[in-house]
Amino acid sequence: MSLLSLHDMAVSLRGRPVFSGVSLTVGAGEVVGLIGPNGAGKTTLMRAALGLVPASGRSSLADLPARDRARRAAWMPQSHEIAWPVDVETLVTLGRIPHLGAGQSVRPEDRAAVDRALSQMGLQDLRHRTATRLSGGEQTRALVARTLAQDTPLVLADEPIAGLDPAHQISTMQCFQDIAAQGKSVVVSIHDLGLAVRHCTRLILLAGGRLVADGAPVDVLTPDNLRAEFGISAHFVDTPQGPVFQPLEVLR
């Protein structure tokens, strides 16, 4: 079953083309890493898929009414905005908004989803703390939990692990893998290619205004692609502990 399908998507911002001709499908049980150099349009692609930015082409999600879309896909933007000093539990509960009717208050199943999200991100001890007074990494985890609490078949997250310590980077990616094991899917934009090859089932390389490669990590992170699109060389081997990817040097 396809959770997201894009057909010939193109976006221009202020008359400047960001990307064009992007077609892809995300099925069930995938952790898709969206990679590419700065300014390649990773954020714009995810926002266009959600219908948050005007785009040509077709997106199965953007076609839906806003409320239905919010029950199919959760979005975690790159800017980690928490406008008011609410506690972590209240923040995570905001993820339940699409599931509540007008004027309906939080139900037991909503609380259960919030509890689940809090424990998935290891935030039980912080649930009554004021979110704006947490450290940057803790805020990020709270916002990931908020996205998980939305309990959608698809999660799109824009650099969710940037700014986290190594343990939480790994556990967040593992959490995405757990979600995928339940038949849901996650699309994450990510700059840490080492984590991407270990935790993503599939990588999508966006560069130079087009979709350059889409497939298993070994097929996407080829020496040619790394040189042409990232301008780096890398050491990429399969070990008994899983694939190891280490960028080495800049080639240009």
Binding site: R47, W75, P77, E81, I82, A83, V86, L94, Q150
Partner: peptide
């Protein structure tokens, strides 16, 4: 009220939560 609650997360996230 519900839309303002959602805006706690910023305009982008609120829109993705189904708020017009």
């Amino acid at each position: 009220p519900r839309g303002l609650d959602a805006l706690t997360l910023g305009e982008d996230a609120a829109e993705a939560l189904g708020i017009n």
